[in-house]
Design a protein around this nucleic acid. Structure first.
Lengths: 342, 342
DNA sequence: TAATATGACTAAACGTGTTTAGAATTTATT
DNA sequence: AATAAATTCTAAACACGTTTAGTCATATTA
């Protein structure tokens, strides 16, 4: 009882024309191929009447284009990524592309398998990725050389790639600056380790440079490294003792939203009241709910919508330019903004 | 300079066998088709050596299966959906399926276009959807009758469908119950309108029934309808005046997380301190960041991971069973849990 | 020994659009 | 009128796996 799908051939038969002609008209190439206006109208009318929709796979098989774009992130439930995803998807939909989203769980092996699968087999026409990788070995593959690939959030060293990122250095510099202006001199920074990811190294650099700018010597013990596969426990272990004698610090600056929430959790656990203790809490990455969170959070907000939009248009540009030799990499660095609360 | 992809035929030529044989072996049907063990080994070895990966589109065209599952939600940046998405994707990945995620922006027309596009053309093998629809007209289409379709979060009236939802009635009943136990008698409920969505009507019912259970008469003015396309402004307009004389109410209960954040925003705007005013704040839907939000939030937490997992396995089951007549709809209703803070 | 069965494999069709090369007809040019 | 050119359209090849129907030895059975 399944309803038979209308095929190109069905339309062709109904109208006593070839399916070639129908295909041409459907694809808007009627004029280019010199199909008479009258015939074009007949085809279009019949196609509408018969509710024709082309088989995507047959088309993709022949043309090598799927109109699918991949988005690979560590964790789609992270609001940072899900917000970007939303805007990427919106921008792509406007151009007739759909979005295939995959989380890698920060698992490098899974990431590489995904990229291999998607890109190499041309399941997708282009890929937007927030890589978990810290070396560029994998992405240096010849097979990826000619593939429309846009990095977001982070880019890789020693490799010329297309990317859309926030100005992590500037954001971190400004935030640290603001903290210093507010009178903070002992700013405890919590970073993720291993932190060879571009975004994080630049945030650290911004932090250090802002200190230097104000002639505040950087203290090694004020930059705490949190192991990325056990954030909560590591924060508890390393920050916990410090909170017990919080007079030594006057600000806590978490370098991403994961550490921020881990800190907030710890504050709750041990009953640490940052406000009372006169400790300013700041974080790179803003989450809208920060507006209501108990210690006021000063944050660096990344332009998620712009990142999403730009990444989408960039990947589509790359697809259009495909084949053009010597395309020099496209790089977009977007400004961040400080959200100062309380 | 593009590197040529290995085709079935390339392997066949190298080994002087037919591509039929290679295809059979690659698909694990070697034994079933009586291909000798030795030949199978040779094929597999050569395929590995030549880094063969099948062309997904050719395969999909022939078999009518894409190994793609669609997920259609109103807004992927809503943590409720992005969390479900994460778990759906994980469960699917384990079975070799990929996930196509689309946001509809609560736009019914866009939703219907998407479903039409995906399902009808068999871009995807199955669809998981949190529909924006309130009537079942669209989903009653014959073309969708035989399509593996799983509703999450909400289901539709007057139509037999497969779904995975939380027990909205029970959760709302228990939450209201808890509020009453805490001594609340004037519980202001804020609902979305139009609210013909199953999840919301059941939450309202749970609220009313809990009141009744405790012989508290339901007051019409205590159920405020917030227009879904302008939540923030409507909350401001309708809740604002009430907050100015908050002695009349002792609890605010928002029926979803959108209204909850809108209320929190309003509290900030007008400087309303729920704790001081002795107003308990409660919400259906939990967000992890609620742990740190200023008025303590009592919430109903939905089992997002389970919803995701169950929806994924359900859709895969439906795909397996496809063609079996008289499959009675699968329905899963999952328990919620109350998260009581402070 | 002829007929049947078994094991191992293959040629060709198929799925559904797109594209190339070319045919048929009409119009323009010399 | 004959040739060239333009207009409109089509047959067939193609993209790349999967599946059906069948081939060709060799082994078994009556």
């Amino acid at each position: 009882m399944a309803i038979k799908k209308t095929l190109l051939e069905d339309i062709a038969n109904e109208l006593n024309v070839s399916k070639t002609l129908v295909s041409m008209v459907i694809n808007g190439k009627g004029d280019a191929y010199g199909i008479s206006k009258k015939t074009q109208e007949r085809v279009l009318a019949k196609a509408g009447e018969m509710q024709y929709t082309p088989n995507v796979f047959a088309r993709a098989l022949r043309t090598g284009k799927s109109n699918l774009i991949g988005l690979v992130v560590a964790d789609i439930s992270n609001p940072f990524y899900s917000n970007i995803a939303k805007h990427v998807e919106k921008a792509l939909a406007e151009k007739g592309y759909n979005l295939l989203i995959c989380s890698t769980d920060e698992n490098l092996e899974r990431e590489e398998k995904l990229v291999q699968l998607f890109a190499e087999q041309h399941i997708i026409d282009g890929l937007i990725i927030a890589t978990t990788s810290t070396t560029s070995d994998f992405f240096k593959q010849d097979r990826l050389k000619n593939f429309p690939l846009v990095f977001i959030d982070r880019y890789l060293p020693n490799i010329e790639t297309n990317y859309v990122v926030a100005n992590n250095y500037q954001g971190s510099f400004e935030l640290t600056n603001l903290l210093i202006t507010k009178g903070c001199k002992n700013i405890l920074a919590l970073n993720i380790t291993p932190s060879h990811i571009s975004s994080l190294t630049e945030r650290v650099k911004g932090y250090k440079d802002a200190l230097e700018e104000h002639n505040i010597p950087f203290k090694k013990e004020n930059l705490i490294e949190i192991s990325f596969n056990n954030i909560q426990a590591d924060v508890r272990e390393k920050l916990g003792p410090i909170l017990k004698n919080a007079s030594k610090i006057d600000a806590i600056y978490t370098l991403n939203n994961h550490i921020a929430t881990a800190c907030l959790n710890l504050f709750n656990e041990v009953g640490f009241d940052a406000t009372k203790e006169n400790v300013v809490f700041a974080s790179f990455d803003d989450i809208s709910l920060f507006d209501f969170v108990k210690p006021n959070i000063i944050s660096v907000s990344q332009p998620l919508e712009q990142i999403g939009k730009d990444a989408a248009s960039m990947v589509l540009e790359l697809i259009d330019e495909k084949g053009d030799e010597l395309k020099h990499p496209k790089k977009i660095v977007l400004p961040t903004s400080i959200i100062s609360r309380g």
